[in-house]
Structures are given as structure tokens and as C-alpha cells.
Design a protein around this nucleic acid. Structure first.
Lengths: 209, 209
DNA sequence: TCCATTTTTGAATTTTTATTCAATTTTTGA
DNA sequence: TCAAAAATTGAATAAAAATTCAAAAATGGA
């Protein structure tokens, strides 16, 4: 992954990753304001001051965490979009990708879900903006797929942006529910239901005009 | 509304409401942690200490605000549910009710949307729990409508709980988008789109099997 | 081994605000 | 009009935690 780096640099990055991983657990459990640098340091087995050699401060640590993980998913999703699939195929494979990623990294998404909606930061903070941009980019990519589907006559004539919102809404809702619940079931297993609601709707076929 | 109260009590309640209204604006603009009691007091034209005669503290002020507003919507929704309408009719009228309420009270919903997802409180805080319970109750009521729709053969055979989640997901997504955007368009105008996606799905009818 | 350089440390400092409370102002009822 | 009661005030207090930094420890090359 990291090529052409000397040992020093590699070790630095490893320690940095260790801190991020400790922070992930603490933030997931207590939220941004509920977590202290002391606790994160303790968990990462560093002195409090050391964290400041790796990150500018608490906010920087927090957003680095989010930014890197979101970047990772984004890259995966983009790769999926580049494959030669039908619009429905793309949406389906993106959905599975997301759900399994989230399922694998529950701690992180507890943070992400709970903060995507924090306006103060999303709007004012430089770091917050960066994260929000990635969400917007995802939404645009999705919109593009929708537009393609409409052009091919596979989807209804409807504002593709509205379609994209509808889709992420359904997904988020199931993710939220899964994260809130004590974690008994598989998130990925909800994919067919999500696809079904979004593509076919819930109205009974018997009644269809 | 307040019947049989003496002037003292009425005046007290008016002042309390004034404070809540000032708090609503401050919290909506800066979030819970970004807002100070000083600023709320100043905006409400009271001394800082006075707020503590009306509320136990900052958290109490915050949750009172949320709890009262959510209670108001909940009552309206319940009334709508008691009317004799078809399942689709109920869902549609609830949707319009919600959207117009949110549109009318944008400041408040900026707070609500951004905090429904704060786990620490929702789960640990006594006041937070109360608010969360109302959301759960709404979800259950919705589930009941879905179940009814299935029984009447109007909706597909599908877990009614999943249906309810799908629906609130789509709604939330449009609400979120509306709150984030600089407020050019009408939220209520999105209702038909929401109904359409949820009931009919986005797949083109031409292609339908 | 030695010492210069880098890294780590955690106690001390600083900042920020929620909350308190003694003093002041307003209201009340006689 | 007046004094007791109620309400308001905002400066002072207290608590919490982010950040800093001088000292200590670890590292690396000669």
C-alpha cells in the first residue's frame, strides 16, 4: 500500500493508524463531545501530548478518521460504477457493497450516520465541508446512473435527482435502524427489500391500474 | 388553549414560551454545543440567571423544546390516523401534514433532524429517551397502517415494519435535502414524488414483467 | 559507549461556559 | 403609599477538558 517509504515514515504511519483506530472506538461509543483526548490517548497507549504530534487537535483527528474511511468507500463505489453493468445492476452492486462495508465497520458508521447531519460543521468547518463534498459526489454519481436508466427506458420519467434522494433515503433508513438496534440481524440481508421497494413500490399488483 | 389559569400562571407560561422561541433560533443556528446560555438569554431579553427559573439547565431547555414540538406534530398525526380513510389516504394525508409542518417551522426541524441521530443522548439521557420514544411510536403507528393496507390487499405482502422504514427513509431524505439547501423550493411540492416512488417504484412500466 | 536528535510524556495552563447566588428591581395586596 | 414577596440580574464560581511545553526517554550514527 505505502510504497517507497523508509522505515521511519512507515512506523509513523502505523502509529498514526493506531491512534485513528483507538479514536474510532471511543468516538463511536461516546460521540465527539463525549470523548476526551485523554481517553483516546490512553486507549491508543500514548501520552496525551503525543496525539498532537500526529494531529492538529481533536477536530482534525475526528475528521481525518471520517475523511479516510469515506474516501475508501467512495473509491470502491467508483470502481463499481466503472464496470459495464446495466443501471439496475450498478445500483444493486453498489448497494451490496455499501451494506457489507457498513456491516463490517459498524463502529465507524455509528459516527458517520450520527454526524452527516450536523450542520454547524458540514457548513462552516473546512474539514466538515470536505466530508460533505464526498457525500454530494456520491449523490451526483447516483443521479447519473438514474439518468442513464431513464434514457434507456428502464426507469420512469422522473427527476433523476429526486430518484437518487429517494434511494439514499431508503438505504439510510435501514442502515440507521440496523445501527440503532442491538445488532441481531444481517444488514446485507435487507438489500432485496430495499431494491424491491425502490424499484417496484409497495402497492399491490392486483390493484394496479 | 390554557384554560382556568390565573394571570400569574399565564404570564409565566408566556415568558417560558418566549425563552423557548429564542432558544429555538439559537440552537438551530449553532447546534447544542455551539449555543451558550448567555446568547439565548440575551436573545430572549432576560438575564442569564433567569433561564434557570424556567428550566433546570441547558439540556432541559433543549429537550423541552424538542419534546413539545414533537408532541404537537404527534397529536396532529394521531388525529389524522383516527379519521376514516383508506391506508393510502392516511399515508398521503400524514405526509402532507408533516411536510407542511416542517416547512412552517424550518428552524426547529434543523435541530430535530440533526439530533435524532445522536446516540449518546437518545440512549442514555432520560429526556433524550422521551423524544426517541415518540419517534418509535410514530413508526409503530405507520407500521399499523401498512399492515392494514396489506390485509386489505392494497399493498404487497412484505414486512410492514420494513415498509414503514422505507417510507420514513424517503421522507427524511427529502426533508434533509430541503433543510440543507438554501430554501428555494417548496417542500410540500415534493409530496407527489414521494408518494410515487414509495407506492409505484421507479422501474419503467414498459419493462415490467 | 556516547551524545545529538527525535519522540514521548503528563502535569500545568488556558479557555470556555454552565450554573449559582447575593444584591437589586418589580409586583402585589392592604 | 408601603413593606413583604416574587422575579430578575449578571458578576463570581466551578468544573471540565483541549492544548502546551519543559523535562525525560528513546533512538541512531560514529
Amino acid at each position: 500500500m505505502e510504497r517507497g517509504l523508509n522505515r521511519k515514515r512507515r512506523e509513523y504511519l502505523t502509529r498514526r493508524a493506531d491512534i485513528l483506530s483507538a479514536a474510532e472506538k471511543v468516538f463511536a461509543a461516546k460521540g465527539f463531545f463525549g470523548s476526551t483526548m485523554d481517553e483516546i490517548a490512553k486507549r491508543a497507549e500514548f501520552g496525551t501530548g503525543s496525539l498532537y504530534k500526529y494531529f492538529r487537535g481533536k477536530k482534525d483527528l475526528y475528521f481525518s478518521l471520517i475523511d479516510e474511511k469515506v474516501g475508501e468507500v467512495t473509491r470502491l463505489l467508483r470502481a463499481e460504477l466503472d464496470k459495464d453493468l446495466s443501471p439496475i445492476g450498478k445500483i444493486e452492486s453498489m448497494l451490496y457493497l455499501q451494506l457489507s462495508f457498513i456491516q463490517r465497520d459498524r463502529d465507524f458508521f455509528k459516527i458517520y450516520v450520527s454526524d452527516r447531519t450536523r450542520f454547524e460543521w458540514t457548513i462552516k468547518d473546512e474539514l466538515g465541508k470536505r466530508v460533505h463534498k464526498k457525500f454530494i459526489a456520491y449523490l451526483s454519481a447516483l443521479e447519473e446512473v438514474m439518468r442513464d436508466g431513464i434514457e434507456r427506458g428502464q426507469f420512469k420519467e422522473m427527476d433523476p435527482r429526486d430518484m437518487a434522494h429517494g434511494f439514499v433515503g431508503i438505504v439510510n433508513s435501514f442502515v440507521f435502524e440496523w445501527i440503532m438496534s442491538p445488532g441481531a440481524y444481517s444488514l446485507v440481508s435487507k438489500a432485496p427489500t430495499i431494491m424491491n421497494i425502490f424499484f417496484e413500490g409497495v402497492r399491490s399488483l392486483k390493484e394496479r391500474r
